[in-house]
């Protein structure tokens, strides 16, 4: 039996110190500073003027901010409505034991996630190009009446973003759901089948409740990710710095970037950032409230 010397009381703090220092320098202080900035007008950190709640009051009447909020909300809802069901459908398809080449399909569906959003943005901007893009070229070749100048990107801003986002993220969501499906107890499914439940009833009453916690997490991740929309519109609508035609692609984060880093108004950008933070916190709290019974049962 080995004897161990007692650690001095400050030993844990010594080990925590590197993290605490880094967190204080790069996490806590920037948060505090950005909160202070939200009440200032700045021209760089050296030239600042305290303006009280002016930045927040201006936000309330800023048409560009509200356009950004509207676009972000539509994108979030669209992403949620499209992505989770499609991911679930793909996961159910790949979960069939009789399906051949499951590993290959998994790789194919997951691969866009690996390449990243910038690459996906570039690919879609080429695919959806008016006259020379692959989509219009193929459609015009197949259907002579198809307009080769069909304005996918300019005329259908949100659908273009949603399709690109779906292609980018559906594989990621699918892999989570597939893992959850593989953990659904087989004996329960067998018992339901013996009791005469058809495929839909087995899915509705056995599979779905079993994978519900994973769906909940995916919904939360999807909403949080969609609210931070930036890179896809920034690439697809690079000509207009991510705004798109008539600001139809302008998201909250794009507007934050433009005000902070193109117009140099760090105070206003901080105010936008804090509004986005409050929205995200409210959504997270709402999620916790909705799942409180499951948490209690666990």
């Amino acid at each position: 039996m080995s004897s161990r010397r007692p650690h001095p009381a400050w030993a844990p703090w010594l080990f925590l110190a590197p993290f605490l220092l880094f967190f204080a320098a790069f996490g806590a202080w920037p948060l505090v500073r950005s909160f202070m900035l939200a009440f200032e007008q700045t021209f760089g950190p050296r030239t600042t003027v305290y303006v009280g709640t002016l930045n927040f009051r201006f936000l309330l009447h800023d048409p560009l901010f509200w356009a950004a909020v509207r676009n972000t909300a539509v994108f979030t809802i669209g992403t949620l409505v499209v992505q989770v069901p499609v991911a679930l459908a793909l996961a159910l398809l790949l979960n069939r034991p009789d399906l051949r080449g499951r590993a290959l399909f998994r790789l194919i569906f997951f691969s866009p996630t690996i390449v990243g959003s910038i690459f996906v943005g570039v690919i879609f901007s080429l695919l959806l190009e008016k006259r020379s893009g692959l989509v219009n070229t193929v459609l015009h070749a197949a259907f002579h009446s198809w307009n080769p100048d069909f304005p996918w990107v300019d005329g259908f801003v949100m659908p273009s973003l949603l399709i690109a986002s779906l292609w980018l993220s559906v594989g990621f969501n699918m892999s989570y759901l597939l893992a959850a499906l593989q953990n659904v107890p087989g004996d329960q499914l067998d018992a339901a089948a013996i009791d005469g439940a058809n495929a839909w009833q087995r899915f509705r009453h056995v599979t779905l409740p079993a994978i519900q916690p994973v769906i909940g997490i995916l919904v939360l991740l999807t909403v949080v990710g969609a609210l931070q929309l930036f890179d896809l519109p920034f690439i697809l609508y690079a000509d207009s710095f991510g705004n798109g035609p008539n600001n139809a692609a302008l998201s909250i984060v794009t507007y934050l970037y433009q005000t902070g880093f193109r117009s140099g108004d760090l105070g206003y950008a901080s105010a936008i950032g804090w509004i986005l933070t409050i929205i995200l916190v409210l959504i997270a709290l709402g999620y916790r409230w909705l799942t409180r019974e499951e948490d209690a049962a666990a």
């Binding site: 021209f43 760089g44 050296r46 193109r262 117009s263 140099g264 108004d265």
Partner: peptide, 11 residues
């Protein structure tokens, strides 16, 4: 260049 001119002239 625009951002360079956002502050007071002397800055």
């Amino acid at each position: 260049i625009g951002q360079v001119f956002a502050g007071p002239l002397q800055d």
